[in-house]
Amino acid sequence: MACHEYGDPGLRRLRSPAEDAEALGRVLRDGAIGGYDVRTLVNQPAHVVNQALDDFFADRSPDDLLLVHFSCHGVKDEDGRLHFATPDTRLGRLDSTSVSADLVNRLMGRSRSRRIVLFLDCCYAGAFARGMVPRGGTALPLREQLAGRGRAVITASSAMEYAFEGGDEPSETSPSPGPSVFTGALVAGLESGEADRDQDGWVTLDELYDHLYESVRAVTRHQTPGKWAFGVQGGLRLARRGRPVATPAPLPPELADAIGHPLAGIRAAAAQELGRLLAGRHAGRALAARLALQGLAEDDSRTVSAAAAALLAAHGGQEEQLTAPADPA
């Protein structure tokens, strides 16, 4: 859900939401990365967004992975309840003219899915700083409003900070402002594969948050992404690595020692363990194993070199590039 046009004079027009929606939707649809079924709502009135959310969360299975992304102004009412602003939002009539966090929370709670991730690219304290438009409101008890089992919430900023738009004002040479700081980092992390921190070929919830935190803080120290997870079991995979792993992951120290051991028998045993890693599901370790086997293929011992060469041949030769394996589910 993205909104940059507002009828209420108290809500300043934003530049990035439409770009946020287009860029994130493109990456999530990409079969090599997300393969998600994406629906985008841009500048739609509150009742349309509310109904779309209701339909989205209904009739789901427990194993369905659901992602929701808001890029808009965030405002709160007199009781401190968060609302997401739409073009028809009236600041004096938030209950009837906005998308309330209470509604989103109730819909998530009713859904049978136990894997729901909510991204909020809006802020809770308004300010303007150097060409970046803040996204409205003041502090709110997000944890209390969006708690529940099997859900995760990642916010663009803390409760007392701004969520900034990216780039400068559009011009003749640069007609598009580009995504916001937060969503721009989200898209870049998925598209480049940089969010795959352990290089196993998958981007998990925790990895994505770590990437967002570092990327956003590198742009502005006045914005700190937050994360809350409620009942999320294990490392929740959100996407595949979009590009081949280019940096090998470290091998276990014992295996690294065995590769350089003076006894050929131990090096030959190391080759067999490298073959197991090469066939495994961790892309970074598989790349490291391939590189190590390439070295052992030149070993002085014919037994070691023959074993290494055979393992490389069994797994696509010496130059195969590695991307995320297919999801076993």
Rank of each mutant, 00 (worst) to 15 (best):
M1I: 12
C3Y: 00
C3I: 00
E5L: 15
G7Q: 15
R12V: 13
L14G: 06
S16A: 11
S16F: 06
S16P: 01
P17F: 07
E19S: 14
E19D: 07
D20S: 07
E22G: 02
D30V: 01
A32F: 02
I33G: 03
G34Y: 00
V38I: 00
R39C: 07
T40P: 11
T40H: 00
L41P: 11
A46R: 02
A52M: 03
L53P: 02
F57R: 03
F57K: 05
D59H: 14
L65R: 10
L67A: 09
F70A: 01
H73C: 12
G74W: 06
V75C: 14
V75R: 14
D77W: 09
R81L: 10
F84N: 10
A85F: 09
T86G: 10
T86I: 10
D88Q: 07
L91H: 08
L94S: 08
S98C: 09
S100N: 01
D102G: 13
R106A: 15
G109I: 04
S111V: 01
R112T: 03
R115C: 09
L118K: 02
L118T: 08
F119N: 10
L120Y: 11
C122R: 06
C123I: 07
Y124G: 04
Y124F: 15
G126C: 08
V133N: 07
R135M: 13
G136F: 11
G137N: 04
G137T: 14
L140I: 15
P141E: 13
R143M: 12
G148T: 08
T155D: 11
A156Q: 06
S158M: 11
S158Y: 11
A159S: 14
E161V: 03
E161N: 04
A163W: 06
D168A: 14
S176Q: 14
S176N: 12
S176L: 14
P177Q: 08
P177I: 07
G178E: 09
S180H: 04
S180D: 07
L186E: 02
L190G: 00
L190Y: 06
G193E: 05
G201Q: 11
V203D: 02
D206S: 13
L208M: 11
H211G: 05
Y213S: 09
V216Y: 03
A218I: 05
V219E: 13
T220P: 05
G235Y: 12
A239R: 08
A239S: 04
R240E: 02
R241F: 08
P244W: 04
A249S: 12
E254Y: 04
H261V: 07
H261G: 10
P262V: 05
R267H: 10
R267W: 13
A270K: 01
E273F: 05
L274I: 10
L274V: 14
R276I: 08
L277V: 08
R281F: 03
H282K: 09
H282D: 13
A283W: 05
R285A: 13
R285N: 00
A289T: 00
L291A: 12
A292W: 09
Q294K: 12
D299A: 02
D299E: 04
D299M: 09
D299N: 07
V304Y: 12
V304H: 12
A306D: 14
L311H: 08
L311R: 15
G317P: 04
Q318P: 00
T323M: 06
A326C: 01
